[in-house]
Design a protein around this nucleic acid. Structure first.
Lengths: 206, 206, 206, 206
DNA sequence: ATCTAATCGAGACGGTACGTCTTGTCTTAAG
DNA sequence: CTTAAGACAAGACGTACCGTCTCGATTAGAT
């Protein structure tokens, strides 16, 4: 009979243990890949008991998720907004080039791919991720695109969500599916193609 | 690791057993999801010995892959080419709407998502998939777009691979990440946006 | 990679589980015989995980060995010495008749035969058995025979180990090889023959 | 009883294959021990198909049994009778010393121990063995002892079977249980003790 | 200054699935 | 037919982790 699991008291939580577990998770994810990653192994490497992991996280995906959050919280310089110099194309290229940098860092990239995989499997984790990481970032993107719309740099009838997908999707896919190298040139080409479309361009009107 | 086993003699292979295993894999993938799918379970449902599965496939992902191939080989009417009526936009909408249909069928969709996940984890499987399923289809897409280019319906300097990504990527992502319903309207909107780009359209010149 | 298997902490061991496993082993050994006995089956019948068996015993023979030890430890009345009434022949007959009783009880006899077989195969097990079960008993036998020697009931130049073999060996063999029924009469006959030898007896002097 | 399979036609049997299988069985038994011996391995080493082994023998014990028979049939000089010089004690020592020689040869000893083990497990095999190997030899022993009885060298009321056990048992046990080295001295001591008994000997009457 | 309630490391436990091994039957192809 | 070769169903092997539970030993807040 399931004894009423008293929800753990977060105030008593030992932050050193938390850090040790998250660090171990990141390292192991990078070393052995997500499939071979195990809670047993994380606890062992962190010098923690298994129950300590299970007390605070429901799955190995959740551990990894928090680990990535810990990483990104290190960035105190997280922009509250995407840059807006008035030149949409230039701003987007700046942002995508920065993303390219990040995804080329295996310490971030490998655990992140692992997490992406887990989200495809675990809907609860996906919802959590969407809520806490994806949505805030997506809101930034939407805000920047709406500003561009207001400034006449984007079609007034453009579907903003679809626009986000056209601009950021190709980069994510090339990364996730390892379909090719992530370069600044690719980032630029995507921005240009998404903004201009694929049809022949009419001669610039003056 | 895997010592080079004497490669099994495929001519002796029992096709009925092969079919039973692939069918069992498809059914179980649809029923319990990829995570709970096990070679143990596949063998049991197929009435096969575990060794028979391990003899012919290196992983559960590989089984599922062959199972999907078996499904698609049932389609004798597989187009050797994408439709080309001369109207690129209409043709693309036709193709994407058909894809939408397919992805809304859980018997195809669920095992396919499972396979997509496994490919992210297993590079060998990903390479096999790319070689045998993805590349042929992608070649069809490229060929159709090059024809459009020749017909002046696509910019002469367009990167064909990037174009494929812009057109087909959003649909794949919405499906894989369950980011929203897959509808014919969405398919149409993607085609239009990809072809026209996101910038305000200049007044049609005549 | 093989992490050094830390020897399990015996203090944490659950005695109820231990008993369940040993009991299951005894029952199965009696039911299906040693060859068909499997660790898988023992764990299943005991309602225990396989790992729990493997954690504490290296082989099915070792399980059975402990099971028999458990049985014999139930005998709180285990004699610290063989009986010594001063009449060697009578005492030996008493002891061998008791052994006959025991070997005719299939609950003891069947697992014991199974263990005997395994010892022939597994030298480590044989050494363990000799150390923990056979030697103590053999020492009792030796002690009783030496007392008889001192009392002039045994030849002073008799090889005690050989004497043990002559007295107890025939019973063990008839049991192990199923060469005939184990009866009190047989026990008596063995004792007499071993003590008197096979040659014609000279007329009793006085 | 094994369902009566259509008994294979022994006249068509290929004797070279038979020899190859029996030789392989002997070699493997000596090399890896009985536990690790497998029909799979025997067939492989003999360059034979598994079915060929299964067609002619019901178990690996049966193969080994025939293999040992093949060995002993090589001895064309098999005595039809045990030596009878009129001196029982001397004759028995001769016979037991010869047995000691044989048991010290690992090419004979190892497969024989393996067979002994299997007989403990497999009653059908034990019956077959008793019928074809043990009984003929035991009859020789009995015959020699009865002759001694008639010659007044053995007590007239001695149980012949028990006598056989007292004389030959200790050697077999020391061998089977590896309880000590097999030497001519041990053989002699056994014969003397069995014949004379363990009690103090009365002074020889003239 | 104790008491109490939680965390924490440790690891036993019942399980599931793994990937390998052998068994004994069956099929194929060559002789 | 016999034979070598080997696919096949079945199931035991021993291993890795799973997620739950229990055990002392620290802690740290509340008395």
């Amino acid at each position: 009979m399931a004894t009423q699991r008293r929800s753990p008291d977060a105030t008593r939580r030992n932050p050193a243990v938390r850090r040790a577990i998250l660090t171990a998770a990141l390292e192991l994810a990078a070393e052995v890949g997500y499939a071979q990653l195990s809670i047993e192994g994380i606890a062992a490497r962190a010098g923690a008991g298994k129950q300590t992991v299970y007390r605070w996280w429901p799955s190995k995906g959740a551990v990894l998720f928090d680990a990535l959050l810990m990483l990104s919280e290190g960035d105190a310089d997280q922009a509250a907004e995407l840059p807006d110099t008035g030149d949409l194309e230039a701003d987007l290229k700046t942002v995508l080039r920065a993303t390219v940098e990040e995804l080329n860092d295996p310490r971030i990239s490998e655990p992140m791919r692992a997490l992406a995989v887990e989200m495809l499997i675990d809907p609860a984790l996906a919802a959590d991720y969407t809520e806490r990481l994806d949505r805030p970032v997506k809101d930034l993107k939407r805000r920047r695109l709406r500003a561009a719309q207001a400034a006449g740099q984007l079609a007034t009838d453009a579907d903003i969500d679809l626009a986000v997908e056209l601009i950021w999707g190709p980069l994510r896919n090339r990364w996730l599916y390892r379909e090719g190298p992530l370069t600044a040139e690719f980032a630029d080409a995507v921005v240009e193609a998404a903004l201009n479309g694929l049809r022949p361009q009419p001669p610039a009107a003056g």
